[in-house]
Write a protein that binds this DNA or RNA. Structure first.
Length: 202
DNA sequence: CAACGGATCAGCT
DNA sequence: GCTGATCCGTTGG
C-alpha cells in the first residue's frame, strides 16, 4: 500500500458545462471504481472532447438507444463497445438534452494495481491503463455501467486529488475519419501512460 | 433483415 | 508496421 493523497468526490456543479473545458479539466482528476475486489483508481492523463455539432461524435445524428446517456446531464458515464472487442467510457457534458461527451483515453494507475494486472492479464504496468479499452478493462468498467452517475454516491466516481497542476498539451484526436484535424485531444505532457505518443502535436 | 463500419487491441512481422 | 478478431448500432433495401 502506497500513501495516497486524500480523494474528494467531485460535485456536478464543479464540472465545467462546456465540453472542451471539461476535457481539459479532467486531466489530473481521479477515476475511481469501488468493487467487490476493493478500490481501483487512476489519474486521468488523456481525454478527447466530442462537443456539440461534432461530426465525429456518437451524438451527431441525434439520440439513439446506445448514446442516450450523452443527452442527459453532465457527469454521467457513457459506456459503449467498439470494434466488437473493446469497451470505452466517456464522461457526459453540456446541458440536459444536448448530446456531448469526453472519451477517457488513458489513466495513470493509483490504487488496486494487483487487481488491474489480474483483469488485464499482464503485469506490464505501462500497459494496464494506456488506451481507452485497456483502462475500462483494468478498472472493471462494463457496458452495464452505461448511464452511471459519476457525481452521486456509487461505485464509479470522479475525485479531486491534491498535487501539482498538470502540464497539459493538445493535439488532434486518434483514429477518426471525420473532423480529423480538430485539436480536441488533451494529455499530460511527459506522462508515460499517455497513448498514441506519435501524435502529441496537432 | 442483411450489410457495414467503427473514438481498439493483441499478436505477429 | 500490419492484420484479424468480433460485436453492436445504424443504415439501407
Amino acid at each position: 500500500m502506497t500513501a495516497r493523497s486524500p480523494l474528494r468526490r467531485l460535485r456536478r456543479s464543479e464540472l465545467p458545462v462546456d465540453t472542451v473545458e471539461l476535457a481539459r479539466f479532467l486531466i489530473g482528476i481521479v477515476l475511481v471504481h469501488d468493487g467487490a475486489g476493493g478500490r481501483v483508481s487512476g489519474r486521468i492523463v488523456e481525454t478527447e472532447a466530442y462537443p456539440l455539432g461534432d461530426p465525429a461524435s456518437h451524438a451527431y445524428r441525434g439520440r439513439t438507444r446506445r448514446n442516450g446517456a450523452m443527452f442527459l446531464e453532465r457527469g454521467l458515464a457513457y459506456v459503449y463497445l467498439i470494434y466488437g472487442t473493446s469497451v470505452c467510457m466517456n464522461v457526459t457534458s453540456e446541458e440536459f438534452g444536448t448530446g456531448a461527451g469526453i472519451l477517457v483515453r488513458a489513466l495513470e494507475p493509483l490504487d488496486g494495481i494487483a487487481a488491474m494486472e489480474r483483469r488485464r492479464g499482464t503485469d506490464s504496468l505501462r500497459d494496464l491503463t494506456r488506451g481507452p479499452g485497456r483502462l475500462t478493462q483494468a478498472l472493471g468498467i462494463q457496458l452495464s455501467d452505461d448511464g452511471a452517475d459519476l457525481c452521486k454516491p456509487g461505485p464509479l466516481w470522479l475525485a479531486r486529488r491534491a498535487g501539482p497542476d498538470s502540464d497539459v498539451g493538445a493535439s488532434v484526436r486518434i483514429g477518426l475519419t471525420r473532423a480529423a484535424d480538430a485539436v480536441l485531444r488533451f494529455y499530460e505532457r511527459s506522462n508515460p501512460f499517455v497513448s498514441g505518443v506519435r501524435r502529441l502535436s496537432p
